[in-house]
């Protein structure tokens, strides 16, 4: 069960994606090795080994667990298939990430790499919408860029969408646009804070812990509060983004999806 949202892509994931395209110019020889096992069957075989060896820490579907990070938002410690192979095979020294079973063959490890890649890619498909028109909707009628950045330009009150097409397929994008409250990641909840003097400050929940919380208000100002220093606070778990249903036509939604889906690594 995958429950991630377009509006749920954390900054760290974007950083991870950045790492993917800013790999060192001169990788080690091993990093140039190509994965020989990338068929659909290889991916399924890799998934099987993943489920046996990796789910304890990284979760059944790669969405992360209590012991290990999610593997569905890019990789922070490898930039190539060969780098992934090495980590799966040997682990990451001086950390809790240990290598896969010694009994696993190299072929099996490559299959795991293929499976991990499958968690971080969406198929290249032709969509009915028009990318250029979708961009105009994004920057114009849709008013999307007032909250979302693409390529370093845009607002700050929503997830950076620079490479959203790498991790959200068209159906998911449609769902994100039409029902933004569904599966909203906690990062995009709203905290409504009532201070001791009765005044209210409200903003996106950038982070919250046991004793403190930090928000960004509608002016993109940053606030930090001690929970014991305010009268009360309230979580609002719905999205500040309106549904496009009442705003855009069917064709405009198709165009917008085509544009968002085009925001992929190879086309940036």
């Amino acid at each position: 069960m995958r429950m991630r949202s377009l509006w749920a892509i954390p900054a760290a994931a974007v950083l991870a994606a950045t790492v993917l395209v800013t790999a060192p110019a001169a990788p080690r020889a091993q990093e140039t090795t190509e994965n020989p096992f990338t068929t659909t069957l290889d991916i399924r075989m890799g998934q099987r080994l993943y489920q046996q060896q990796c789910t304890r820490c990284h979760g059944q579907t790669g969405d992360g667990g209590e012991l290990g990070p999610a593997l569905t938002n890019g990789f922070t410690s490898a930039s190539t298939d060969a780098g992934l192979f090495r980590i799966v095979r040997e682990g990451i020294p001086n950390t809790q990430m240990i290598g896969i079973s010694r009994n696993a063959t190299d072929q099996s490890v490559w299959m795991v790499v293929s499976y991990l890649n499958s968690l971080n890619s969406t198929p290249a498909v032709d969509l009915p919408g028009d990318v250029a028109a979708g961009r105009m909707v994004f920057e114009g009628k849709g008013n999307c860029s007032s909250c979302h950045m693409v390529g370093g330009e845009g607002g700050r009150r929503g997830p950076d969408l620079t490479r959203v097409g790498d991790r959200r397929d068209p159906d998911e994008l449609v769902s994100d646009l039409r029902t933004p409250d569904e599966d909203l990641a906690p990062r995009w909840w709203t905290l409504r804070v009532t201070r001791e003097d009765g005044s209210v400050v409200e903003g996106l929940r950038m982070s919250e812990d046991t004793f403190t919380m930090r928000i960004m208000d509608e002016n993109e100002d940053l606030w930090s509060f001690s929970k014991s220093g305010v009268r009360s606070y309230e979580r609002v778990t719905s999205s500040i983004m309106p549904s496009v249903n009442a705003l855009l036509t069917e064709d405009e939604v198709e165009d917008l999806v085509a544009y968002l889906y085009s925001l992929r690594r190879e086309e940036t």
């Binding site: 429950m3 304890r56 969405d63 906690p186």
Partner: peptide
């Protein structure tokens, strides 16, 4: 010497 778990678990929400 290999893991022998027969399944797994996944938290459905953050």
């Amino acid at each position: 010497g290999d893991q022998f778990t027969g399944g797994g678990a996944q938290r459905p929400l953050p």
